[in-house]
């Protein structure tokens, strides 16, 4: 079980949280202008990163708030958690498998 540092409440066991999948996927501003391929990519395609991965969590059985975590998927070590609206650290950006 992971120990997850909620940016609002502090460290709590994983059982208090719900995982929300890959972070920083913005809903297209104008979905009607997208091709079917672009819409499918938004809905279904994921990086499935091997390495540093940014994901959403929700402190479902706590404060109820969403936040993001940067976790290494080869070790499950969470490097950092940060609030919604913040970006991952520069050195973390673009980390792909």
């Amino acid at each position: 079980m992971l120990l997850i540092n909620c940016p609002y409440c502090g460290p709590r066991p994983e059982a208090e949280f719900a995982n929300g999948g890959q972070a920083h996927i913005a809903r297209p501003a104008d979905p009607m202008s997208l091709t079917d391929d672009e819409w499918a990519a938004y809905l279904y395609m994921r990086d499935n990163t091997k390495g540093l991965h940014h994901e959403r969590w929700r402190h479902a059985n706590g404060c109820g708030r969403f936040f993001n975590a940067s976790r290494d998927t080869t070790t499950d070590v969470i490097k950092r958690t940060y609030r919604m609206g913040e970006r991952p650290e520069a050195e973390h950006q673009g980390a792909k498998p």
Partner: peptide, 13 residues
């Protein structure tokens, strides 16, 4: 587990 991972191990819970 609820999160993606390449570790080949999961949580005891």
């Amino acid at each position: 587990d609820v999160y993606t991972s390449y570790t080949q191990r999961g949580g005891l819970h």
